[in-house]
């Protein structure tokens, strides 16, 4: 069997995580190529539908990366995102997808190392979980 390479979708806030990803790049910090970054203006902009669609289209894991607590460029978008993630996690369980496949993380723009570390950790976690049950169902 071919080795499982998870597909991870990372919704990254333009003001923190996306810049941190840049930082990681310029510091030549490696992180897994499994992570597909989607830049969003704020983590609070990530809709439940975006997350669900990612899973429907075969993502094995999704994470939303927003600013540190109290640092949201739009006041409290990151808090809203965190609440939304909790809500979508429940929906995932209803559908039959392990809710651990969805995570909310926070970081600042300067945390290049944290970005790379987070990307690696989440990729490894999903690798252990195996392919998403939806992906498995699609390929069968």
């Amino acid at each position: 069997m071919k080795k499982f390479e998870p597909v991870i979708v990372a919704f990254c806030c333009h003001y923190c995580a996306y810049t941190a990803a840049d930082m990681a790049g310029s510091q030549r910090l490696p992180y897994p190529a499994n992570v597909k970054i989607i830049r969003v203006p704020c983590s609070g902009k990530v809709d439940a539908l975006h997350i669900i669609k990612a899973f429907e289209n075969g993502a094995d894991g999704v994470y939303v990366a927003g600013c540190l607590e109290g640092d949201c460029h739009f006041k409290n978008g990151n808090e809203k995102a965190a609440r939304r993630i909790d809500y979508v996690k429940k929906y995932l369980e209803e559908i039959g997808i392990e809710s651990e496949r969805l995570t909310m993380v926070t970081m600042s723009a300067g945390m290049g190392y944290r970005f790379a570390q987070t990307a690696t950790e989440i990729t490894e976690k999903i690798r252990k979980l195996g392919p998403s049950p939806i992906k498995t169902a699609i390929t069968q």
């Binding site: 439940a48 539908l49 669900i52 429907e56 929906y91 209803e94 559908i95 039959g96 997808i97 939806i134």
Partner: peptide
């Protein structure tokens, strides 16, 4: 409209799982 989208995806995935 948004809930229709969410439910459609959720249903689709749950049904796929059950074959």
């Amino acid at each position: 409209r948004k809930e229709v989208g969410l439910l459609a995806s959720g249903l689709q995935m749950a049904l796929l799982k059950s074959g």
